[in-house]
Structures are given as structure tokens and as C-alpha cells.
Amino acid sequence: MDVFMKGLSKAKEGVVAAAEKTKQGVAEAAGKTKEGVLYVGSKTKEGVVHGVATVAEKTKEQVTNVGGAVVTGVTAVAQKTVEGAGSIAAATGFVKKDQLGKNEEGAPQEGILEDMPVDPDNEAYEMPSEEGYQDYEPEA
């Protein structure tokens, strides 16, 4: 019985440690998101679009440190934060509304985080759909 109880105690310690790591990862992701939003706020009209992409990228980098179902929630929060940063930029006159959601080359930025393969159960990952990809044929 002692062996059984000791095993359960060790398992509990492992769960607590994993929860603490997840909590730490979420806190880091939130900190990076805040950094990115402050970065966007300090940019001029020309830099705002690039700044919004930076927020998304920093958040995406930190999301990889967070495991399990938390990833889905962090990704949703990050996307809403990026959308909010863009709205703030438009409201303050840093950028025109028609410039939001495009990178410096004018290509749409939507789907940055949505296409990231995420499995809350950590069982399997699927690649994003290939609808947006084109076949590449090298020139002879």
C-alpha cells in the first residue's frame, strides 16, 4: 500500500510541476504579447503594419512553449490582441483601416495563427491545408 501511495504522490508532483510550467509559459506569452502591443503603439504610420505582424510573430513563438489545451486559448487571445492593436492603430490615425491585415508588401496577414497546427491532446499534428499553395516548377 505504501508503494501505491508513494507512486500516487510522485504522479501528483509531476502534474503540479507540469501545471506550473504551463502557467509560466502562458505568463511569458502574455508578456511578449504586451511587449508587441507597446511596440505597435510606438510606431509611426509606416511601421504600424509591420508592428502588428511582430506582435503576432512574438506571440506565436511563445505559444510553442505552452502545451496542451492552453495553446488553443493563448492563440485565440493573441489573435484578438493583434486585431485590437490594429483597431487602436486605425482609431489613433497611425494607419488607414484599409491597410490593416496586410503586410508591407500588401499581402493579407489573416491566418497567421489560424494555420498553425495545434492539437490540445498532444496526440497528432496535421499540416495546414494546401489550398493556398501553388506547385513550383523550376525553369529549365
Rank of each mutant, 00 (worst) to 15 (best):
M1Y: 00
D2S: 02
V3G: 01
M5L: 00
G7H: 05
S9T: 02
A11H: 00
E13F: 13
G14I: 15
G14A: 15
G14C: 12
V16C: 11
A19G: 02
E20P: 00
K21N: 03
T22D: 00
Q24W: 05
V26A: 02
A27K: 07
E28S: 10
E28R: 07
A29W: 13
A30F: 14
G31D: 07
K32S: 02
K32H: 07
T33F: 02
T33G: 03
T33V: 14
K34F: 05
K34R: 06
E35W: 13
E35K: 07
G36Y: 07
G36T: 15
G36E: 03
Y39G: 02
G41C: 11
K43V: 14
T44V: 09
K45W: 15
G47Q: 14
V48F: 13
V48K: 01
V48Y: 05
V49D: 01
V52K: 01
V55D: 00
A56R: 08
E57M: 06
T59C: 13
E61S: 06
Q62P: 02
Q62Y: 11
Q62M: 06
V63N: 01
V63C: 05
T64V: 13
A69D: 03
V70A: 03
T75L: 14
A76K: 13
V77H: 01
V77D: 01
A78N: 01
K80E: 02
K80R: 08
V82N: 03
G84I: 14
I88E: 02
A89K: 03
A91T: 05
T92H: 03
T92A: 11
K96G: 13
K97D: 15
Q99L: 14
Q99G: 14
L100Y: 02
E104I: 07
G106P: 12
A107E: 05
P108V: 08
P108I: 05
E110K: 05
I112D: 06
L113R: 10
L113K: 07
E114M: 03
D115G: 14
M116V: 01
P117E: 02
V118R: 10
P120N: 06
N122S: 08
E123R: 04
Y125C: 07
M127E: 14
S129N: 04
E130D: 10
E131L: 05
Y136C: 09
Y136D: 02
E139S: 11
